[in-house]
Amino acid sequence: MEILTAKEVSFSYINRFQRVDALKGVSCGFETGKAYAIVGKSGSGKTTLLSLLAGLETPTEGEVLFEGRSLSALDRDEYRRDSAAVIYQSLNLFPLLTAEENVMFPLKLMKLEKDEAMRRARAALLSVGIGEDKFKRLPSRLSGGEQQRVAIARAVSAQSRIILADEPTGNLDITNGNQVVSILLRLAHEEGRCVIIVTHDLEIAAQTDEVFMMKDGVLERGLQV
């Protein structure tokens, strides 16, 4: 069953100079237990689609459905807090919070007790390969790969059923990039989450279960090289 669906979604915004039609009648569906890739050139609208799927923007036309209910009818803050985690290419972590606190952040928003939040955060950090010695480190003292894994751990600990990752390996070397991708794929295939990855990297896209191609605001199913 589709957990997340975009129905004829269009989105326009005004930048400094002109109106930009970022998405034009995009329709697609995403299921739990699968990993998806959205590929496309810069400015093609893939990040905008991710924002709409995350409830950070409202479609100009059409709608985004979460479990069959329109996001516009839901509390979108609650949706992100409880169901959809977003992982960015960079600036993923709060720079003044330790790795552990970064992971605990959404759990505190969910009003979990401190002990329970800490237990879940530590377990999530360990599950993505961050050792105890790095729990108390600030992001500035973590490598790019570690920072990305902490960001994933945040999604893991919050038990978000949807993970939206925007170029998660964009700033990483191949080894770290592969690690991050394998964690994301594991979350989809072993933990039954819906993972949507926006990427330039066709090799990463090839590892996912389904690929969407974004071109000039139009989404097409399948990879066309």
Partner: peptide, 14 residues
């Protein structure tokens, strides 16, 4: 700004 954006995307209300 990034911290604020991150907080919002983590589900913190405006």
């Amino acid at each position: 700004k990034n911290t604020y954006a991150l907080s919002r995307s983590a589900g913190m209300t405006k």
